[in-house]
Write a protein that binds this DNA or RNA. Sequence first.
DNA 1: TAGATTGTTAATCGATTAACAATC
DNA 2: TAGATTGTTAATCGATTAACAATC
Lengths: 215, 215
Amino acid sequence: MLFISNPTIERLSRLYILLGELEKDVCSTVSSADIGNYLGVKRTSIRKDLSFAGITGTAGASYRVSTLKQEIEHKLGFGKKRKSCVIGIGKLGSALLDTDIFESRGFDIVAGFDSNMNVLETRKTRVRLYPAYKIPEIVRQDNIEIAILCVPLKGVDISVERLVEGGVKGILNFTAANISEKAKGIAVKNIDIVNNLQVLSFQSSLSDVTSNIQV
Amino acid sequence: MLFISNPTIERLSRLYILLGELEKDVCSTVSSADIGNYLGVKRTSIRKDLSFAGITGTAGASYRVSTLKQEIEHKLGFGKKRKSCVIGIGKLGSALLDTDIFESRGFDIVAGFDSNMNVLETRKTRVRLYPAYKIPEIVRQDNIEIAILCVPLKGVDISVERLVEGGVKGILNFTAANISEKAKGIAVKNIDIVNNLQVLSFQSSLSDVTSNIQV
DNA sequence: TAGATTGTTAATCGATTAACAATC
DNA sequence: TAGATTGTTAATCGATTAACAATC
């Protein structure tokens, strides 16, 4: 079983996107130093990451862009299409449903859910909307792997229960709630936007911002 | 100069919100073990965090909710209102402009910017919208401290330049670009949603998700 | 060959966890 | 007093960085 740490996957994911860009620009090779510059990390970190993923270039020569991209795609499964859904069609949820940033990177949003009938009837969206109680049914039926959770706090518990029931494999949690308990055995990643703002706010209040910390 | 590590600020920020909730529920005291349960972290980690921030309870007794909240607010400056703006009024930008999640936590969005005149004329938003070239002027004039960056990749560089010119203090970067170079001396925090999805996707593809990793 | 570059081992750094005396 | 809880010191853990031989 391939274990790769979180920071490493994050960097490799960013590298994967970068390689796509470089391909367009008809760059054939790229060194770890180049990559480090683009991504804002140390070159040795990049080499270590590739090594962790079991990817190896040729000593002395730079990495070949096309093969490196393919290898990352293969080892980490980035190429695969993943069916996804959005839970909670509020401001943020609608925006995510409608945006096209996901498609280009392999995520296919196929459904939206909300508990408010009014929302279901009035919101115009590209994908089909369903009432929240249908989450287990539709998730299972359509083989949805990833859920993007954008409900208000009081809707979190029931949503997670339904997703678990439907057999979802991962939840991207935009709520401030801690769902790891309820979502045992499912991958969870949290993005608390306001929390990020608060951290930023603290950092920016320090007179001397030498450490420009990244996520 | 108070240095507090990123993970610690993140937890204290979450704790601050939690204490607000507990106050509503008329809880007068709370132990580090309780807090740990709520936030999904070890109790000793909480005690360490408070210690880092120079906050101390009374040995033997639990923490008093109201005073703990006040102390965090005081030490980390969470109480202060921070003027903010959104750069790029696309899908995500509009959603963030319109949402009310910020206000309740001290962030006051006072302006939006976009380079597309059409957007400026047609989008209905609560706050005033300005053309992008006015960023330096308005940011300085209105004392805007925080910028939320939601522009497409090709608009990133010029946006950051303008923000720096206006003297902004922190940027919450929703683009996939690495802006730390351009934003030297300014606090930056990155939220790459699709990158998060990709990491999640990798984790969920592992059969055994014992480590339910958090951000 | 000389200069650039890789992959890996060892050293460093920082954050989390464990242990425990002090206190209510 | 006994049980629960804190604050801090020491130990552990994991990730990043440095160093360098091997290779093109």
